[in-house]
Design a protein around this nucleic acid. Structure first.
Length: 573
RNA sequence: CGGGGCGUAGCGCAGCUUGGUAGCGCGCCUGCUUUGGGAGCAGGAUGUCGCAGGUUCAAAUCCUGCCGCCCCGACCA
């Protein structure tokens, strides 16, 4: 492509409303422009990168035996009512009515549509397993779109859906997708990590997230270098501590007047104790019923773990009136002694004795409280969020913490949708069985943004070869110099003939401007055709990533670049 | 949804407190010079000051309402 014909609006200034590097660079390098909140247009060069990534995804999906389909964006409410998500999905589902007043929505994901398709067409175990995937635009009406295409409302996504005869077969499908994902992100040259994740509202038995390591990532993760344990921060387990010798305290419970002392910090200061000696009592509403969660003063409750323990659909901090109802005391003075609701305690309470806790009486706390003696616990469980000092739950060694961008998620769905929507087949014995499903997503635009997040420097983007919109840019330093222009043109033609994706920067601009743009848009190789070198019959080949320069005769430069491109495309095994 | 902020030329912003002439940088157009890391000089074009009302002799500026966008938080496959 000739630069002079390209629609590639680069901007010199850093956009004021972009606060992560990938967002800034995508705008500056003319990859994207925003239409409205959370909705972006991909410009030609940006779209080339998207298509490059999609192609990698496609190749690996096909290799794993999945087949591509293309599904509707507009979906009827009936399907969603059938799966139960019309009610459950909430405001992220953009709903509207058509001219006949039929309720519709824009697909935020396609489980319903694919399940409907498969249940209508697949009748027997002989037709299973199947894995169908789509690479399409989806819409989720995010509360707060941010970070450019990383968290937006309209976005490109690859979703694959697998259908199997039973759970073991489904595990195999899951493993194939897991392996394919590792190949996909490795081919992009990304530093990433698959981590155990919560399967969330989608339901299902287990799942992994693929996180691209980046400090700006929205997800936290822990990983262990001694064993292979890696998990999302929300999911990361904390091992049950060894059972200590039963504690028998001689000290009697003591009620202390603590006027206006509510927070852990205030309690500690007032009673001269440390947070480790205090137990927090938090009242939650689980599907409308009050429950108390006990946790050590210096820990944080992990609501996902509480939700999973209780198996409830909704979990919220209780309102003041409900707290008073079960505890007879306002927020800040709640404790487990005499409380009128089920009590669940975090593992960290095991072995604690003579601790401080709210008295269930306004402006009072209790000292020397002991479990068993003063109140009873319905169950002990892992209910808190993991912290720096916690050891690996598997091997006990030191855990590492990092942040990452979620670019992929694989779920084993189980029977959730097949039951709700009656996706059944006849087995060998002619008996009706539910299909066992899995779903596997990859955020297309988000992966591209994550790639930039991991591959940039002060001058701009540094594309890994497999995703680069073009592989080489030929830069004559002065197009008004006939010899330079001619030599550049010839080089460009020979690369095009060899199947290399090349840009000829034929603009009548100063060399500095061209260099800046080439660096900004991140083309891996730049070939400079300047008067001094050309007089010796040579050109410069420069690597964007390293700045390494090779001065080569014209014909050798052609081969050199072809080889460098091939080397850069190799998927690491 | 709660809190904060912004809306003035294509982009980034000043002007608003204290009402009266719409300005700066970048970009854009023309010409000359320049040509290896975002050139110099000269000339030029560009605005319903987000929208709608109101106050006033007079509104970018003051008042009311609306719309859009951004940031923080809560929420979330």
């Amino acid at each position: 492509m000739r630069y002079s014909n390209m629609f590639l609006p680069t901007v010199r200034e850093v956009p004021s409303d972009a606060d992560v590097i990938s967002h800034q660079l995508m705008i500056r390098s003319g990859l994207i422009r925003k239409l409205t909140s959370g909705v972006y247009t991909y410009l030609p060069v940006g779209y080339r990168v998207i298509r490059k990534f999609e192609q990698i995804v496609r190749e690996e999906m096909n290799r794993a035996g999945a087949q591509e389909v293309f599904m509707p964006t507009v979906q009827p409410a009936e399907l969603w009512q059938e799966s139960g998500r019309w009610v459950h999905y909430g405001k992220e589902l953009l709903r509207f009515r058509d001219r006949h007043d039929r309720e519709c929505c824009l697909g935020p994901t396609h489980e319903e549509v694919i399940t409907d398709l498969v249940r209508n067409e697949i009748k027997t175990y002989r037709q299973l397993p199947r894995n169908l995937y789509q690479i399409q635009t989806k819409f989720r009406d995010e509360i707060r779109p941010r970070f450019g295409v990383m968290r937006c409302r309209e976005f490109g996504m690859k979703d694959a859906y697998s259908f199997d005869i039973d759970s073991e077969a489904a595990d195999l499908s899951y493993q194939k997708m897991f392996d394919a994902y590792n190949r996909i992100f490795a081919r992009c040259g990304l530093k990433f990590r698959p981590v155990e994740a919560d399967s969330g509202a989608i339901g299902g038995s287990f799942s992994h997230e693929f996180l691209v390591v980046a400090d700006t990532g929205e997800d936290g993760m822990v990983y262990c270098e001694s064993c292979s344990y890696a998990a999302n921060l929300e999911k990361a387990e904390i091992a049950r501590p060894a059972e200590p010798a039963p504690v028998a305290s001689a000290k009697a419970v003591e009620e202390v007047h603590t006027p206006d002392v509510r927070t852990i910090e205030e309690v500690c200061a007032f009673l001269n104790v440390t947070p480790r000696e205090v137990v927090k009592t938090l009242i939650y509403t689980a599907d409308g019923n009050a429950v108390a969660v006990l946790i050590r003063g210096d820990h944080e409750v992990n609501e996902i773990k509480v939700k999973n323990l209780l198996g409830c659909d909704s979990l919220e901090m209780a309102m003041e009136d409900m707290i008073v109802e079960v505890a007879n005391a306002p927020r800040g003075f709640v404790g487990a002694v005499g409380i009128r609701c089920p009590v669940y305690a975090d593992y960290s309470l095991i072995g604690m004795a003579d601790f401080v806790m709210g008295a269930n009486k306004e402006d009072h706390h209790l000292r020397n409280v002991n479990m068993g003696r003063d109140f009873s616990v319905k169950a002990f469980a892992d209910l808190r969020t993991i912290r720096d000092e916690d050891p690996c739950p598997r091997c006990g060694k030191t855990l590492h913490f990092a942040r990452g961008i979620e670019v992929g998620h694989v779920f084993k769905l189980g029977l959730k949708y097949s039951k709700a929507m009656r996706a059944v087949y006849l087995d060998r014995n002619g008996k009706e069985q539910f299909m066992v499903m899995g779903c596997y997503g990859i955020g297309i635009g988000r992966t591209v943004a994550a790639t930039i997040e991991q591959n940039n420097d002060t001058a701009g983007i540094v594309w890994p070869m497999p995703l680069a919109p073009y592989q080489v840019i030929v830069t004559p330093t002065n197009v008004n110099d006939g010899a330079l222009a001619k030599a550049a043109e010839k080089l460009y033609d020979s690369w095009i003939a060899r199947g290399i994706e090349a840009i000829l920067d034929d603009r009548d601009e100063r060399a500095g401007v061209k260099f800046m743009d080439a660096d900004l848009i991140g083309i891996p190789l730049r070939v400079t055709v300047g008067p001094k070198r050309l007089a010796e019959g040579k050109v410069e080949v420069r690597f964007r990533r390293t700045g390494e320069v090779h001065v080569l005769p014209l014909d050798e430069a052609v081969e050199f670049v072809v080889r460098a491109v091939q080397d850069g495309m190799k998927a690491p095994e």
